[in-house]
């Protein structure tokens, strides 16, 4: 554009530094030592639009109330430690930006639902991992690869289960499932996703065993296709689609 040089001659306009604004957070607190019941507590925090919910939690913990308890490890959406319910939907605190939320109203933060609440935003993840272990989420091959070679897999064979390899076990899907809230015995979306990852792996030979495990009253047939899991997944896995594929594999008796 012709105006580019003109602008360069003019004195550079002062770039306004972004100003922080006050955001109200209402956090559901629970201390098992002192509280008989969870309670809501609100905090006002100075935030920028590019900040994340996790930054707000850090500011609260470091500057206002050191007793606020939550889990986070990598803080960059890889480890899956900080799944929580933000404004009524399961999200990773480290991947939810302030600018994507309506800050004219307070932001509600609470622990994920359906798992035993331990303290503030921390739940007992053991039932979740128990279901994960039960689907045998590891490669089981009946044959050894050729000496000095790897197991060969074509691009097309790999593409079948590519989506379900992305799971970080944050429990956002499982704890968004209405069936899981009322029936803790249900394997839950995350366990089925991880079963799918090996059921459809051409190098694995134990698909039948996993399909048998999931062809249970508390297995894939509990899924009512509410799609909460697909919408909650921070990795964008099409969870309900994966569960539907496992359902079909169970019906046909083979992946």
């Amino acid at each position: 554009m012709s105006t580019a040089t003109l602008e360069a001659d003019a004195p550079a306009p002062e770039i306004e530094a972004p100003k922080p604004f006050t955001v109200t957070f209402i956090i559901r607190r629970f201390d098992p030592d002192t509280d008989a019941e969870a309670r809501w507590q609100d905090f006002d925090v100075e935030m920028y639009a590019t900040d994340r919910i996790l930054d707000a939690l850090h500011k609260i913990k470091w500057e206002q109330d050191g007793s606020l308890t939550f889990r986070r490890s990598c803080a960059h959406g890889v480890c899956g430690s900080d799944a929580m319910r933000i404004n009524g939907r399961n999200r990773l605190a480290c991947k939810t930006l302030i600018k994507d939320l309506d800050i004219t109203k307070p932001i509600y933060i609470e622990a994920i639902k359906g798992l035993p609440l331990e303290k503030d935003l921390i739940v007992d993840m053991e039932p979740f991992f128990q279901s994960f272990r039960e689907v045998q989420p590891f490669l089981q091959s009946a044959t050894a690869p050729e000496p000095g070679k790897e197991r060969v897999q074509s691009v097309a064979q790999r593409a079948i289960f590519d989506d379900t390899t992305k799971c970080i076990l944050c429990a956002a899907c499982t704890s968004s499932c209405p069936v899981f809230w009322t029936d803790g015995q249900y394997f839950g979306p995350a366990a089925i996703v991880n079963a799918h990852r090996f059921i459809f792996d051409s190098r694995d030979d134990q698909a039948k065993v996993r399909l048998d495990i999931l062809n249970d009253q508390e297995g894939v047939w509990r899924c009512r296709t509410t799609f909460n899991c697909t919408e909650a997944c921070p990795r964008g896995i099409e969870v309900t689609k994966a569960i539907a594929e496992v359902k079909q594999a169970v019906m046909r008796g083979r992946a």
């Binding site: 098992p32 009524g88 035993p116």
Partner: peptide, 27 residues
């Protein structure tokens, strides 16, 4: 050795209503 609270408060449901989308409300 800590004092346990009077009522077992674990596993108590509550909090806000989960905000699902079309899929959940159709169910």
């Amino acid at each position: 050795t800590l004092q346990t609270p009077d009522a077992p408060a674990k596993q108590r449901p509550g909090g806000t209503l989960y905000r699902g989308n079309e899929g959940m409300w159709s169910w």
